[in-house]
Structure formats: structure tokens, C-alpha cells
Design a protein around this nucleic acid. Structure first.
Length: 321
DNA sequence: AATGAAGGCAACCGCAGAAGG
DNA sequence: GCCTTCTGCGGTTGCCTTCAT
């Protein structure tokens, strides 16, 4: 196929629209409808190509356009639909009244995509990145937090004393982080072994990161000492299964089994939602939540990383990521 | 206060499929 | 069935604004 660009025609204006042009276009369409975009510019007295007019109308001038920041719900919907549809912006836009595909695309590229990447998720698959070093910043941050708490009993105590009924939540969060790190360290051990066997050597920065993660100061035992209190509440590390405490479930954003796929993570806007193709391929986990909890992020056969579930939108996590 | 970097967004480009002759 | 035209879509670019130094 292929067509010559319509705007190559000499004399046609390109670039930003002026208020006068906007008004002409708006008035013409309101009066006559857009009809053929090809002929519209001439009929409307605009020195633009039809394509440019169509874009301006659909992305900016249309009366039903909703402007302003995306809401949590919209964000959630975009993430969910993108996990299913991929970069089908027009299809995603049909589920968000008043939003244009261009706007959604921009929002994805400038906000959501970056956030997923920062948190170590592949924005295309919505799964944890399988390339370990891409997730290094997050792992290092977690390791630093653990070391900080281990070195500062007061801070640890303060965290645990988060106030009355929050103790269980705080403790659960703490244990969650411990398990996250333990999981990562296990992965790294495997990675390092593999690399050694293959005769490859990580560069200096990577090696330092490996050290930091695999040998945190005096805490090879991942449950001591900062999680002593949490151990009392949650005697065993049960992740990636849901913690025993219902309060902890809330605090960590675990959704109930009967929650629909839009709320798998307790309504938090992130992390990425379940890859429904998994559910489709796996009848035993037909509900989106099961697919997410047990396979998508929990060390599925498709991913070499034994990541537990990760809830980066939890304020506790976002505070230090 | 000045300047460079980064972020955000509107608009353009080129491809692909549908429609019509 | 083939060709041309039109429309829609996704990727990319470039400008403007905001932020950091």
C-alpha cells in the first residue's frame, strides 16, 4: 500500500492550530457535520489537509472530550485493557468515554509505562522483568531499607509501633519485604551460579549490587532481627500466598477471591493487572485473580524469576522506591 | 537569575484496511 | 479482481513548559 502524504501538497499549513482555525473547523462541523474529511478543509475555508482537520477535531475540538488528569479508575482501566489488548489505543479509548486514543497513548508513554519500568515490570507483558539487572534499582532500594532497619532498632521499633491496630499491617509489610528480598537473593544466587558456570562475569557495579543483596550486613537470616515482631504475628513466611492476617491482607492490597479482575489488587492502581490470557489458557485459574496470584507474578513456568507478588502502589513501598 | 535537562502534549508521518468504482 | 481513494491507527517528532542546578 502506501499513499503519498496528503500534507505534502504545497501551500497547506502545518503545525499548531490557531484559535481562528479552530473556530472555523468547529463551526463548519457543527453546521454540516464532517462529511468527507478530504473536502472539508476547502469547504470550511481552511488551508489544512483533511487529515490534520480530522485529528484536530477528534483529539481536541470534539465537544465530548474530557480534559484534565486521568482518574484512578481510568488509570486502572487503561492498565487492565493494555494488559489484554496491548497498544490498541483506539480499542482502549472506546472504554474511556471522552478520552482520545492519542491522549491515552500519551498518558501511557509518559506516565504508566515509566512507572511500570521503574518498578521492574515489563510494560508490554505486565510481568516482572526477566532481565535481572533491569530490576536492580528496586532490589537495591529494598536491600538498603532492610539494612537500615537492621542497623537502627529505634526505627524498626517505630515502624512496628505504627499505632494500635496498625501493628499487624506494619509487621506484615515488613515481612513482605523480607520475603521479597529473600526471593530476589535466591534468584541472584542462581544467576551468579549460572554466570559463574558459563564463565561470564558481571561488571563492577553489578557485582557490587549482587554483594549488597546477597550479603546484607549480618542478616543472612532474612527473618532476623527486624521482623521479630512480625514473626510472632506471622510465624512463617507464607508468600507468595496471601498472609494469614486479614488486616495484613488489606494493608498489602490483597483482593478477595471474589473480587473482579479490575480489583485484584485491592483497588490499587498498580501493579499491572492479570494477564487474562493466562486465565484463558489455564482453566483451573479461570478467575483473573487466581491467575495473577498463583502464576503471573508468583514464579510461573514462563518466568525464570520466583518473584512473590509485588504491590508497588502500596504507600509503604512507594515511600522508598 | 540564567541555563540546560526533563517532562508533557499536540501534531505529523506513514502504513494498513475498508470502501467504492 | 484490480486500482484508487478515504479513513483510522500507532509510532514518532518537535515544541512548550516545568524543574533542577
Amino acid at each position: 500500500m502506501g499513499r503519498s502524504p496528503c500534507c505534502d501538497e504545497s501551500g497547506l499549513k502545518k503545525g499548531p492550530w490557531t484559535p481562528e482555525e479552530d473556530e472555523k473547523l468547529q463551526q463548519y462541523i457543527q453546521k454540516n457535520g464532517h462529511g468527507s474529511w478530504r473536502t472539508l478543509p476547502r469547504l470550511a475555508g481552511l488551508n489544512r489537509c483533511g487529515k490534520s482537520c480530522r485529528l484536530r477535531w477528534t483529539n481536541y475540538l470534539r465537544p465530548d472530550i474530557k480534559r484534565g488528569k486521568f482518574s484512578q479508575e481510568e488509570e486502572q482501566t487503561i492498565l487492565h485493557l493494555h494488559s489484554i489488548l496491548g497498544n490498541k489505543w483506539s480499542a482502549i479509548a472506546t472504554h474511556l468515554p471522552g478520552r482520545t486514543d492519542n491522549e491515552i497513548k500519551n498518558f501511557w508513554n509518559t506516565h504508566l509505562k515509566k512507572r511500570l519500568i521503574q518498578m521492574g515490570f515489563d510494560p508490554m507483558t505486565h510481568r516482572p522483568r526477566t532481565d535481572f539487572f533491569a530490576a536492580l534499582p528496586q532490589l537495591i532500594a529494598l536491600a538498603a531499607l532492610r539494612d537500615q532497619l537492621a542497623a537502627d532498632p529505634a526505627a524498626s521499633a517505630q515502624l512496628q509501633a505504627g499505632g494500635g491496630g496498625d501493628v499487624a499491617i506494619q509487621a506484615a509489610k515488613l515481612q513482605y519485604l523480607q520475603c521479597l528480598l529473600q526471593s530476589a537473593a535466591t534468584t541472584i544466587d542462581g544467576f551468579a551460579s549460572t554466570a559463574a558456570a558459563a564463565g561470564s562475569t558481571p561488571n563492577a557495579a553489578e557485582a557490587a549490587a549482587l554483594d549488597a543483596l546477597c550479603s546484607p550486613q549480618g542478616t543472612q537470616d532474612s527473618t532476623a532481627p527486624v521482623s521479630a515482631a512480625s514473626d510472632q504475628l506471622l510465624p512463617s513466611c507464607t508468600f507468595p500466598e496471601a498472609p494469614a492476617s486479614s488486616e495484613a491482607n488489606q494493608g498489602l492490597g490483597y483482593g478477595g477471591a471474589d473480587v473482579d479482575v479490575f480489583a485484584c489488587h485491592g483497588g490499587a492502581s498498580l501493579p499491572p493487572l492479570a494477564d487474562l490470557s493466562d486465565a484463558a489458557n489455564n482453566p483451573s485459574s479461570a478467575d483473573g485473580c487466581s491467575a495473577t496470584a498463583s502464576s503471573s507474578f508468583g514464579g510461573s513456568a514462563g518466568s525464570p524469576l520466583p518473584w512473590p507478588e509485588f504491590f508497588p502502589d502500596d504507600p509503604f513501598i512507594t515511600d522508598f522506591l
